[in-house]
Design a protein around this nucleic acid. Sequence first.
DNA 1: CTGTTAGCGCCTTCAA
DNA 2: TTGAAGGCGCTAACAG
Lengths: 348, 348
Amino acid sequence: MSRRRRVTLTDVAVRAGVSATTASYILNGRSAQMRISTPTDERVRNAAAELGYRPNRSARSLRTATTTTIGVISDFVASGHYASQMLTGASAAARESDHLLMIGETEGDAALEERLIDEMLERQVDGILYATLTTRQVTVPQALLQQRVVLVNCIDPGSDLPAVLPDELQAGRTAARLMVDAGITSEVYAVGEDPTPGALSGALRLEGLRYGLEEAGGALAGVIPCDWDVVPARDAVSQWLCSGRMPRGFVCLNDRVAMGVYQALSERRLHVPDVAVVSFDGSDLATWLQPRLTSIAVPYDEMGALAMHRLVEPEGAARDLLAVATVPMVVGWGGSLPDRRAALSRLV
Amino acid sequence: MSRRRRVTLTDVAVRAGVSATTASYILNGRSAQMRISTPTDERVRNAAAELGYRPNRSARSLRTATTTTIGVISDFVASGHYASQMLTGASAAARESDHLLMIGETEGDAALEERLIDEMLERQVDGILYATLTTRQVTVPQALLQQRVVLVNCIDPGSDLPAVLPDELQAGRTAARLMVDAGITSEVYAVGEDPTPGALSGALRLEGLRYGLEEAGGALAGVIPCDWDVVPARDAVSQWLCSGRMPRGFVCLNDRVAMGVYQALSERRLHVPDVAVVSFDGSDLATWLQPRLTSIAVPYDEMGALAMHRLVEPEGAARDLLAVATVPMVVGWGGSLPDRRAALSRLV
DNA sequence: CTGTTAGCGCCTTCAA
DNA sequence: TTGAAGGCGCTAACAG
């Protein structure tokens, strides 16, 4: 069971009694194309198996200038299950074309970002997914402008890099429709705000919401500002309720805000759905709240998958690489990725 | 702004008027060792900067048989912020030694796992982190036994691979101490169970809990079995409370269980901390509940970082690579990674 | 149908 | 203090 020297293609060729070239063709599945005889083919495959041959991709990469490896640069990939789902989707899509993912978390640090990008480019990645935790505008580092890149959850107005974004506007309208379908067109309040410069989701969700309510002859009654987290939302809504107002519905700008709203309502002995609550995110949290929160999901996994597809797509299909693709946000999140992708394919 | 041919080391050398050898030495920081003159050194560095030289690691790897890249194989890396924190810790630690991470999510599929491992080995990763979402026993694939590997959050009884685990037993005792310090030594119930074969956390947490309570002259009053999630815990405890029993404390086997317990208590108009609740995980959820949940954190980030350190550690320090390292679990999770690592360093 | 030859970009002995 | 030469393992023209 001792470990000999690394097994090389030449070793396989020698054992099979052929040249390295022939072995290379066969092991790369080009036997047919090269019209190699069946016995030779088999001898080589057997030799490879017996020797436990494993191609050295460093050598191959040096020769072919490709690595079948994709870099993922993101500010906070792993933080929370929000963006990490994007990785899962990208990873699954990468697998379809035998690519592997190399990750780099920049922690929002520009210097670190540059370093990680350099490291990836030195390692000859075939492309880079540039992803952000929040949907927003960015300025991608210079070094990326000359590379094959797809933006995920962000856009760079200063470049024409392809991007994949959730359809926030449509999501806002969906939220409105949920309220309208429940017979509620007035006394609907939005909870949250989007204070970060460059942030996109908040504004678009609100716009869609307003538009949707007006379409139904209603109107958004107001916005309760607060940071997008449980405690700030709880405090803000709690205080707001003290003023004695009686809302018919709350549209929360994310699930954590909704949790805070649930708590604030509970303090006042108010109950969902006597007051209707709708939210955005589609996180696990929505399923944990009682009653279960209706939440419009950000399809992180699909976004990752779609971005990956666009990145590795053959050049021929690259015509629309200049476009921004938009992935629909849907209520709930029961569906599996393939299911939802079927719906998606009609739209992009 | 057009894109020329790739810039090679020779290009830099030519431009600086030296040989590739000299340029190589200088750019790899060996000028001093090779006693290269200052002017030469500067000329080469300038040339590299002007040309935007970026070393081709495929070539270097082919020559040196190292990639400064580490593979991370895990069942569900990205799922939830639980295990993804491990990635963050590992990633940060990797950066310290200029390593990059390559990820592979196996989704618990053995065939896929083998394929991903092969792909990584073909890409010549310098080592592999083998991580699991839940703390448990595993049997690592054959292919890994001959490689440099560190297990994270799991152990393989059939091999002597080094591993990093959270100290679940101590965590159980900590939970007991929290109850005891609050003056509660009886009528304490544990909520949850660990039905997965090979799972370690549940049993160890319970054992530590029992031991800790007995040390203080108390005893664990019982265990309410349920799956480790919000709804099952809510249902189980809700029903259990119907029997009219009046607990003094609940030790929940994770934070989601605790959320379910909060809900069940609330239904019966019972309030925390009239009934004391302690939990394990240290997830964000703990900070969202009202009142804030006391939770003993699984230090995923530290585990990832420590495992990474052990993996890239110079061979000299590898003497203890056979050991299982244990990372303490602590209450709350306000501390930054460096802070907590200081506490950690005494223990491993 | 298969082998010969050359070279991807880099590092590293050896010689000067 | 620097340069010349060789080879890591693989693929791709080009012969035959």
